[in-house]
Nucleic acid binder design. Structure first.
Lengths: 169, 169
DNA sequence: ATCCCTGCAAAGGGTTTGCAGACGC
DNA sequence: GCGTCTGCAAACCCTTTGCAGGGAT
């Protein structure tokens, strides 16, 4: 990480802390060290994480929080819009930072389960058009594309290197 | 149900049974009565259902199947494309018939959780464009719009009649 | 000092698994 | 008859809950 990035990261962290503080005060919630420590940890990385990832990371930092607190804090962060929640595969929820990130959707590699991001303005158009049609106000959406990687010259996945299986039908 | 609908339903059931048989033979799976009974039950209703719905329906029909068999059979039906699986809210998976239904997506009322269907050809365009861009072959997708119902003259949901809550922020 | 938040561990709900017996092949 | 599918129940995983003690206000 460059010095510039580090500075930017620090600024972001300060901003999200401020937002969180305002939210907690407004909602008469206590500003506990655990909650800020979790927020800090979340904004120290990019990409998706699940509850256990976060729990383990905190442990490695020698900052002990219980899973219950992780869940509790994530609920608060979801509620104040600092974190987004996704349900990709079959199991556990995935989360990601939400502050300062622009709207995007996800393509999931069916082979290696890696998640890629993309943007397309037409999704907004579809949302509002369908809301209009069905008489709803769309608040949010989730679009997941599930896809097979293309083969490289060795027949392996260009992304993850695993051999690409042929589809059967 | 009109006589015409009944006839159509019967035809559909025969067609899906034939597809299932072909699939089972091809994949060296046994053609057990439980599997056909479940397929039949699934194609006797419209709309979404979860594993327990199906299990209960079978029980009411006095056809005893274990939950394990329901899961097993649903896996097979998913694999041969006769059933589609969805993960709407937080919990359990939902399923629906897939044969003879055109591609559609879902709008979920955040208030009453009722699921509405819609179609928009632009989603296909987005899928293929993004596949191209990221070098994947998109096999399927899921688009969920989460939305608040609009209020009627009494401030209630036009769809479900429950009072529409104001959003807080 | 209050009482909400935390940690811990147990409970919960949906799904999967292991095993013995049944049955499609 | 062989091998696998079924039913049953226990195991599993992620998440929620209950309770006693500690810390924010």
């Amino acid at each position: 990480m460059t010095a510039k990035d580090a500075k930017l990261l620090k600024e972001t962290k300060m901003e999200v802390r401020a937002i969180f503080t305002t939210y907690l005060e407004k909602n008469k919630q206590r500003r506990t060290p655990e909650r800020y420590a979790l927020l800090d940890e979340i904004y120290s990385y990019k990409g998706h994480f699940d509850v256990d990832d976060l729990y383990i990371k905190m442990k490695k930092r020698n900052y002990r929080v219980s899973r219950a607190t992780v869940y509790n804090t994530l609920d608060l962060l979801l509620d104040c819009g600092l974190v987004k929640k996704h349900q990709f595969g079959e199991q556990g929820s995935q989360f990601e930072q939400a502050y300062g990130f622009k709207q995007h959707d996800h393509l999931i590699c069916v082979q290696c389960k890696k998640v890629h991001e993309f943007c397309d303005p037409r999704i907004q158009q579809i949302s509002s058009k369908m809301g209009e049609l069905l008489k709803f106000n769309v608040t949010h959406h989730s679009l997941h594309l599930y896809a097979m990687p293309r083969k490289d010259e060795n027949g392996d996945c260009e992304q993850c290197g695993i051999e690409v299986k042929n589809e059967e039908n």
